[in-house]
């Protein structure tokens, strides 16, 4: 299991965390390469179906990251995302997916170092869980649905 390198899909809001990830790059903070970023304008854009889809389509973990509470570029989008996505943990449990495969974080445009830390933490956490067995090809294909 030690050689397992998880794939993590990260949905980042354009104004805070995506900018924070840019700053991590500019500052040359090194972090694990397991995270693949998908940029959206606001964390409120994230439909819970995206998270489940990502886990079905090959991701071992999913991260949603936006502006700190109270600092949303769109006033309240991150609150909406938070209200909606805390329920995700229970939804995943119900689907038989370990809830720790999904995580939310708040990283501002000035927190490049924090972005590197979050990526490192998420990667480590998902590594401990091992490969996601609910991927579409592993479950549905084998059952020749």
């Amino acid at each position: 299991m030690s050689s397992f390198e998880p794939k993590i899909v990260a949905f980042l809001c354009n104004w805070c965390t995506y900018a924070g990830a840019d700053l991590a790059g500019t500052s040359r903070y090194q972090y694990p390469p397991n995270v693949r970023v998908i940029r959206v304008m606001c964390s409120s854009r994230i439909n819970p179906a995206f998270i489940i889809n990502a886990l079905l389509e090959g991701a071992d973990g999913v991260l949603v990251s936006g502006c700190h509470p109270g600092e949303c570029h769109y006033t309240s989008g991150n609150y909406m995302a938070r209200r909606r996505l805390v329920l995700m943990h229970r939804m995943l449990e119900y689907l038989g997916i370990h809830p720790d495969r999904f995580r939310m974080s708040w990283v501002s445009a000035s927190e490049g170092a924090k972005w590197a830390e979050v990526v490192t933490e998420v990667t480590e956490a998902v590594k401990v869980l091992g490969p996601n067995v609910i991927k579409r090809e592993q479950v549905w294909m084998q059952q020749s649905l």
Partner: peptide, 10 residues
């Protein structure tokens, strides 16, 4: 976005 999720998963 779903197409991007699929492409990234491959």
């Amino acid at each position: 976005l779903l197409a991007v999720i699929g492409a990234i998963g491959k």
